[in-house]
Design a protein around this nucleic acid. Structure first.
Lengths: 244, 244
DNA sequence: CGTAGTATTGAAACGGATCAATATCTGTGG
DNA sequence: CCACAGATATTGATCCGTTTCAATACTACG
């Protein structure tokens, strides 16, 4: 659980450890393959570990992209500030997620710590060299990026929903699915602010606030605090999530 | 130019040819690198060429994913039909684009030809084998998927716009940028229907229709036909596109 | 040249954005 | 440990643009 005030339960791993997904193969069942020990050592040998406090900026959009990062614990947000002054969060990145998306050598988004985070910082040129040496390693990254693409496509579907409550429900559902334990009775940790949720869901802060209020009033979700949600009516919750 | 009625100007290439993008390196300037001749031959040796007419379905969502495809001319759309009955187009795929996104061995979307198309169909297992043999080749694919991720993130920003005219303008801008020639005076080919545009932009068909009417009325864009747009006021067009 | 699919246009209603006032939280320093 | 201040969130009222429903027009293909 990534609490707001930092990593209460320290993350065990000290080396990059990637939860792989299939690139599109039939190897089925959401297979969770980690890198081999040798590969982890290889990556670790070129990576630097960094620890950051909430709000720390990891990099700014349009600056020269020299590193790729692996989140080793905590939550970060990747966003862009639009000309209109609005902020759009492209993604929240959790443990094991890779980030550092760039174009023409410059980062596409600004990335900032939401909670305290631990990162592995990997020089891009060295990583690229490793990729050519070790096809398996590169394949893990290919799978990771493919997974990010799938998530982005799902997220686009969320953004086309008209109802704010539905979007928020889908967001909570997404957070819940990240939980390793399928303990669907426990509380969902919501490490980000309502404002961050709004920026991610393409809603105003007020709409998110009203949506959470509506979910509470309809007795579908309860909030022990703003950062701890609990599904109290699973049936109606799933129905709402599926009403796309 | 991919016209509605098919490939008027036949596509020259007979082998897969990938327009590469940087994975995030500093190798700058939107570098367009193609596969080496040897790599193209390697891919061609395991690929099958297919030619399809408009409306032909290439694969259905949730079916077993056995191939990855490279679009060798024409336009296809990747979509999902939601429980509500609405259709959401995740992406339009043009020449040189790769598609076949899967999860747990099953395709995520349904893919259908918009115009007449030529495809290279590549068996997934053999491609995966090639990837491990040839890190450079795999890297081209990694770049392609990374590019698709960037596009999906941009598209998410489009979807958060309130104004239909702005979304349509951004869509036309996207189509224009695909044109090889920077001849910004020529017409933009719009191979898909208004309904497809709506499904892609998260709008109703009526909203798209009214938006194109508004763009015409405001003398920003003219439509020689429904499938040929022309920017007549570049200044106001770019301003509208940037008003995010 | 007809017909089915596609697109346009109008009117009403819904839902979120916005503006504004107030309340609550968080973390810092006394 | 408590008080305080700035940031974050809630709640209310109004406005605006899209959706929806409905009728009509267009266009592409056989």
């Amino acid at each position: 659980m990534t609490t707001r005030s930092g990593l209460r339960r320290p993350v065990a791993i000290d080396e990059p450890s990637l939860r792989a997904v299939t690139f599109g193969s039939a190897s089925g069942a959401g297979s969770v393959r980690l890198l081999t020990k040798a590969q982890r050592q290889q990556v670790a040998s070129i990576a630097t570990s960094v620890r950051l406090r909430p709000r720390a900026v990891i990099y700014h959009e349009d600056t020269t992209a020299g590193w790729v990062f692996i989140n080793a614990g905590g939550v970060v947000k990747a966003f862009r500030d639009l000309p209109s002054g609005k902020r759009r969060i492209a993604a929240f990145l959790f443990a094991e997620d890779i980030f550092g998306l760039a174009e023409n050598g410059r980062y596409v988004n600004t990335v900032q710590a939401v909670t305290e985070v631990r990162l592995h910082r990997i020089p891009l040129d060295e990583l690229q060299r490793l990729f050519l040496q070790d096809g398996q390693l590169q394949f893990q990254f290919l799978c990771k990026v493919t997974d990010a693409l799938r998530q982005a496509q799902r997220q686009k579907i969320v953004l086309t929903r008209r109802d704010a409550a539905g979007r928020v429900a889908m967001f909570l559902s997404m957070l819940e699915q990240r939980l390793p334990d399928a303990g669907l009775t426990s509380a969902i940790d919501v490490p980000m602010t309502r404002s961050d949720m709004a920026s991610y869901l393409g809603l105003s802060l007020e709409a998110v606030s009203r949506a959470t209020a509506a979910l509470t009033e309809r007795r579908i979700v309860t909030f022990a605090s703003r950062h701890a949600a609990k599904i109290v009516d699973r049936g109606r919750f799933e129905k709402l999530v599926a009403e796309v």
